[in-house]
Write a protein that binds this DNA or RNA. Sequence first.
DNA 1: TTTACATATTGACAATTCCCGAAATGTATG
DNA 2: CATACATTTCGGGAATTGTCAATATGTAAA
Lengths: 106, 106
Amino acid sequence: MDIDMIEISKALSNETRLNILKWLKSPEENFPPQGGCLSEPVDLKGGVCVSSIQAKANLSPSTVSNYLDTLQRAGLLLSERHGKWTYYRRNEETIKALAKFVKKEL
Amino acid sequence: MDIDMIEISKALSNETRLNILKWLKSPEENFPPQGGCLSEPVDLKGGVCVSSIQAKANLSPSTVSNYLDTLQRAGLLLSERHGKWTYYRRNEETIKALAKFVKKEL
DNA sequence: TTTACATATTGACAATTCCCGAAATGTATG
DNA sequence: CATACATTTCGGGAATTGTCAATATGTAAA
């Protein structure tokens, strides 16, 4: 597991993106219940759809979509599409690796 | 001890600045001996002068001076002036607080 | 005090990032 | 298929950052 510290730092250097990461620590507390309209029940693994995040972030859909992409490219988020919705959740593996990097290498 | 995660992330989102922070972990390994011309012997606490860092970074003095300022404003470096030279060293307190933040809050 | 040197500040321009609205794409449903 | 909706991509203007050369400041030495 190796991380790209530059990309991660860039991703974290924006308040909204930082908030998204924090909000996704407890999706139940920060977002309405997800996946209500899906025909087949699937495990969303705590993932939250873009529109829920967009509503909370109070920015345009395209901006939020971009932010989520930035976080994902940095390895901090994972996404899974179900029907019309894309559910984003934290990538705890990278976040753990980041914590380790900051502690040991920085 | 509270840190400004945005400012810190911005400071870390540049390869040279990241390198400076790493180089300053072992100043003896990465830079020539410091403080050779000082009349009074003072404890430099591992600090390195701007020109030594500039030589290693291979960027203009003004750029390096700016970078050091950015790192200091983020709380990641400390500086101390002795004679004509400004010696920069790591601020381990902030770096430790950052590691803690990433582990606990991120 | 004149000079020389280390560093910091300023001004400029290119590159990147922020953020939006508009348009495009994917997907389910009538 | 036609429509509606969730999301992504595209194009752009404003703001920020990267980087330099030129200038200014601070300090020591001649």
